[in-house]
Computed example of a mutant assay.
Amino acid sequence: MAQSLPSLINESARFTAVHAALVSDDQTSVTWLVSGAILMVQQACVLALSEAGADMPAMPGPNELVVRVADPAILPQPYTAPMKPDDHRALERVVAARNDVMHPRPGGLHLEADMLPDGVLTAVKLVRHLLLTQPVRPSMVEASDAAAVSHSLELIESSVDFWKTVLKAR
C-alpha cells in the first residue's frame, strides 16, 4: 500500500483529534493522544526537511527532527519553525510520555496528564507552521489534505483547551 506523506499526516492529525476529544472523559486516550501528536510532528518535520533538500539521518528521533526544522541553517527562513525554549521543553514532555507508552516498564505506565497540554498545543503549532502557514513548497500538500489537517488541528486545540480547564478543576 502506497500512501503519500501528506495523506499520512492527515490521518495522524485526525487520529490525534479523536483522542484529544476523548481525554477529558477517558484518561486511557492520553496514551494515544501523545503517540498521535508525536507521529504527526515527525511526519510534518520529515516532509518539510525533505522538501527543503535537507540531509536526514536514517532513524531520526522526534526531538532531533524538531531541532532541525527550528534551525535556520538547515531549514532556511521563512520556513524555519518558530520554536522558543519553552516550546522545546513542552514538546519534550510529550515525547517523553510517548516514549513511556512505546517502551513499557514492568511497573506499568503513569503519565502526568497535567504536564502535557502545552506540548500538544506546541505540536499543533509546529505542524500548522510546517504544512499550512509556511510550507517549503506551497504545492507539497494538496488542498483537500491541507483543509482536513487544518480542521483536525483546530479540533485538537479546542479539545486541549477544554482538557486544560478540566485538569484545573480537579
Results as ranks from 00 to 15, higher is better:
Pro72Met: 11
Ala54Trp: 00
Val136Gln: 01
Pro78Cys: 02
Asp161Val: 03
Ser4Thr: 12
Asn10Lys: 12
Gly107Thr: 14
Leu130Ile: 10
Leu22Pro: 15
Ser144Lys: 15
Ala13Thr: 07
Leu116His: 09
Ile38Tyr: 05
Ser7Arg: 15
Glu154Lys: 01
Val46Met: 13
Val69Arg: 03
Leu132Trp: 03
Val34Gln: 08
Asn99Gly: 05
Ala20Asn: 05
Arg170Ile: 11
Val41Arg: 01
Pro60Arg: 09
Met140Tyr: 12
Gln3Met: 12
Ile9Phe: 01
Thr133Arg: 01
Ala97Met: 01
Lys84Gln: 11
Ala58Trp: 07
Pro104Gly: 14
Met59Leu: 13
Val23Glu: 15
Arg105Gln: 14
Tyr79Thr: 03
Thr16Tyr: 04
Met56Tyr: 05
Leu49Phe: 00
Leu33Ser: 02
Glu92Trp: 06
Ser12Ile: 09
Phe162Gly: 05
His19Val: 04
Leu130Trp: 06
Leu49Ala: 03
Met1Asp: 10
Asp161Thr: 01
Asp86Val: 10
Leu47Glu: 03
Ser12Glu: 09
Ser50Gln: 14
Phe15Asn: 12
Met56Lys: 15
Ser159Lys: 03
Ile156Asp: 05
Arg93Gly: 01
Arg137Pro: 07
Glu64Leu: 10
Cys45Tyr: 08
Ala13Cys: 12
Lys168Cys: 04
Ile74Arg: 13
Ala73Gln: 12
Pro6Gly: 08
Gly108Ala: 04
Leu22Gln: 11
Glu51Arg: 15
Met40Gln: 11
Leu91Glu: 02
Ala2Phe: 15
Arg128Cys: 00
Lys164Thr: 00
Glu157Met: 08
Asp55His: 07
Val23Trp: 13
Leu121Lys: 06
Ser24Ile: 03
Ala96Val: 02
Ser4Phe: 12
Pro135Phe: 00
Tyr79Gly: 02
Lys168Pro: 10
Phe15Arg: 09
Cys45Trp: 01
Lys168Gly: 07
Ala52Lys: 08
His110Tyr: 13
Gly107Gln: 12
Gly107Glu: 04
Asp87His: 08
Val34Ser: 05
Val46Ser: 05
Ile38Gln: 08
Ala143Gln: 10
Gly36His: 05
Cys45Lys: 04
Leu132Tyr: 01
Asp118Thr: 06
Pro106Thr: 15
Ser4Asn: 04
Asp25Phe: 14
Asp100Val: 02
Glu11Cys: 03
Arg98Trp: 08
Phe15Pro: 11
Ala90Asp: 00
Pro62Tyr: 00
Gln42Thr: 07
Ala97Asp: 02
Gly61Pro: 10
Ala70Glu: 06
Ala147Ile: 03
Ala123Cys: 00
Glu11Pro: 05
Val18Lys: 08
Glu142Arg: 15
Arg170Phe: 07
Arg137Leu: 10
His103Asp: 08
Leu5Asp: 06
Glu112Trp: 08
Ala17Ser: 04
Phe15Cys: 10
His19Tyr: 08
